[in-house]
Amino acid sequence: MTGASTADRPRLATTAEALRIVDLIGNTPMVELRCLRESIAPGVTIYGKVEGFNPGGSVKARSAWNLVRRGLESEQLRPGKTILESTSGNTGIALAMIGAALGYPVKLVMPENVSRERKRVLQAYNAETVYSSPMEGSDGAIILCREILAQDPERYFKPDQYNSEYNSEAHYLTTGPEIWKQTGGRVTHLVATIGTSGTVMGTGRFLKEQSHDVQVVAIEPSDSFHGIEGLKHMASSIVPGIWHPEQVDRVVGVDTEDAYDMVYNLAAKDGLLLGQSSGAAVVGALEVARDLTSGVIVVILCDFGDRYLSTNLWLGWRDRHQLAANK
């Protein structure tokens, strides 16, 4: 025996340990958003944490898996139960993926106007989908989901992403530590959008515990009538139970048009094709960066843009404008 502790002994994950798709969640890379350099002081760097690399393609893999994992531990989720959740998209995809991998049926309630790609992906994972009115937004889905649960509460396990602290915990346990490690403790600002608020809450809490100086910035649409899929305008929405506004230093409102323009910009100049919520987050990060002479800003990029190609972000007005311009 040598003096080294067995805990330090390097070992290879066996095939059995890495067999499940859920074991690949997290540990996403960060990339500098170089196209923003010209707009900010030389002492400021903006990094994007590219959550699209998660299985299921979004940051929601983290929270969905933690909610399911905790459900399994407490046996609230057990064989015979169906996973039921209201979602504007990415959480649904993550839950459908996890349900498929673990052998649990998944039923999702979402507004009818979520993107076509999302609906197709959910079908592929064999999830059952129930659509709420496109006129009522994600809150319409929340209300319809409550009704479905009330009709047969024993049948379902509801992860309850809007109200379960296990949502934020996912980010406290994974996203926060990853950012701290990836920046070597140099991070000065966290910028993340508010959907359920789990990402900004959990990640922010962890980072502030490491350094009180870390500023936590939450991004929301500037208006209740907006086109940034997955985000909530807090003043006009059912406020998530896990949202604790006193834990953020600043909330920045972003216009839909600015978010869309940032998506086009990042794709064309940095080779990063992202979704509209990432566009909004980067607009917010840039606003924060402009006031700084030095700092390391980490912005959460929720997902890639492939799943929005059929939405207004690309199809529709922009194409029409370009067609008209090219005539």
Binding site: S88, G89, M110, P111, N113, V114, S115, P134, M135, E136, G137, S138, D139, G140, A141, P221, S224, F225, H226, G227, I228, E229, G230, L231, K232, H233, M234, S236, S237, I238, V239, Q276, T311, N312, L313, G316
Partner: peptide
């Protein structure tokens, strides 16, 4: 005629 935001944003509670 229906006026629909392109996505599913928050609605007033």
């Amino acid at each position: 005629i229906s006026i629909v935001p392109a996505i599913a944003g928050g609605a007033s509670a």
